[in-house]
Design a protein around this nucleic acid. Structure first.
Lengths: 263, 263
DNA sequence: ATTATATGTATCATAATATGATACGTCAAC
DNA sequence: GTTGACGTATCATATTATGATACATATAAT
């Protein structure tokens, strides 16, 4: 009846993953009942799966409130991820240099479907919490990084992305008009960098330069977020952009070499 | 026969987690066979579980090499973890300030069994890759952070830790003599901060100040790593330590309030 | 080229394993 | 003291995972 494709699909495992995914920024710790509700699983299944995850060290359980929470293992998974992503090793030292030179927050974003995900963040100024931690996924169309990446795609794909990829209004000034986004991306294609203003946070300006892969398509971007209170677009282009682009360009060929030469 | 405690333990889920844990810093991408070997599962089970993880977006699969790799979902789990850990929210802005003031690498470490785990890292200087990414677990006894934490434990527990917790020789100068570690921890208990030299990386000095919980026990530490080529112990104590301690102390009471007042 | 070896993929009968309804215990609110 | 909400434990049933085997495909050796 479930017929996903049976026989090489283990339902119990998939259900267990559902439990893991039930935790997010709005749901930091969950009771058994809440878990059941959020996963759509019945009480018994939730009980067994949660218990298994607890025994296996994936979920911590508060002995008094009996609520479940992500364990340190979740961070270890990020650690393993970092080693497995060949881009990070190449990029990290260069990003550190960049953030020191600029004295401003520097991010590394990768394309992930129709979103971008922040893979590395080097915060230099105080900002919103969400802007300081890795693993955040945001609609690619609404971020400078995403636009810088999309701008390197062939015409057809680019248009497809602009027309169909999701947009969520995070601030009153988040651009919902896809024509405006198209313009922004066209500019990015012409200039080799993208800019976004107030898309995620009010009075925040983002600049991003793409990291180009062996096939000419970008799959990541180096991005810098600054406050509109202290920066203008002109000063960003004059003072930040050159170093940003140098960094992105320095990563691109190194990465190509890595892919070609690797085991 | 397996009799872990049956009925509320879902074996398939646990096996799936085994696959996830097969990836680490030495094993960044694995073939089906390698996965089977590393997990001790037979080929069929590995096939089904890996496929499930792939379908569910937990593992990426290279279409040509057919090798599996951690997916971006692993980073999203770190994101969820960050929101769930009440310490991070309190600590992050203060850590950013500290790293800007010092211009040196600042870390936040939490105790995790007999290890510490780096929960946040703000690298300012170029170092080894492993020192720039979060989620690394290290033996508590061999790190300044771990020693600073253990030093706040009651006498009995402290001695138990010193005698039984694991030590791994990472460098030729890693201290294997537990008496020397006992001395270091005793000093930390007296001074309120811990120092370690060349435990993980040669010519690296670590200083750490504990973050004390409501019960007087530390559960985390703010830590700073500097090069022995440019720093001496005296200058560290004079120039770095005060700000480090201010930061740690500023986090401790805020955290207590959070625990007490929280929902 | 041809064979051999390794590695990934698909199939299927069997029973072991997960299932979920139910009942019990515990705590807090009313 | 009673009620309700929530976590925990049990158990008969059949759904679901199992793993041996056979097939396909890629890589290396002769």
């Amino acid at each position: 009846m479930k017929t996903k494709q049976d026989t090489l699909y283990v339902g119990s495992l998939a259900k267990g993953l559902r439990l893991l995914r039930a935790f997010d920024e709005g749901h930091t710790d969950l009771s058994l009942g809440e878990l059941a509700q959020r996963t759509g699983l019945d009480k018994s299944a939730t009980q067994r799966l949660a218990n298994t995850l607890h025994v296996e060290g994936m979920l911590d359980k508060d002995p008094v409130t009996r609520r479940f929470r992500p364990s340190h293992a979740w961070l270890q998974m990020a650690y393993a991820y970092y080693w497995s992503d060949p881009l990070i090793g190449q990029a990290m030292p260069k990003l550190i240099n960049l953030s020191q030179e600029l004295g401003e927050t520097v991010n590394l974003a990768e394309i992930s479907g129709d979103h971008i995900i922040y893979v590395s963040r080097l915060p230099c100024k105080r900002t919103y919490f969400a802007a300081t931690i890795i693993g955040r996924r945001l609609p690619a169309l609404s971020t400078s990084g995403g636009r810088a990446i999309i701008a390197t795609f062939p015409e057809y794909e680019r248009r497809h992305a602009i027309e169909t990829w999701p947009i969520t209004p995070f601030t009153p000034s988040t651009t919902l008009d896809r024509d405006l986004i198209a313009t922004s991306i066209a500019e990015a294609a012409r200039d080799g960098f993208a800019v976004s203003t107030g898309q995620m946070i009010l009075n925040e300006i983002g600049v991003a330069s793409p990291i180009i892969g062996h096939d000419g398509r970008a799959f990541a971007a180096v991005q810098c977020s600054v406050s509109a209170h202290t920066w203008t677009r002109e000063r960003i282009v004059a003072d930040i952009l050159p170093k940003l682009q140098d960094t992105a360009n320095a990563i691109s060929p190194a990465f190509r070499a890595h892919r070609a030469g690797g085991a």
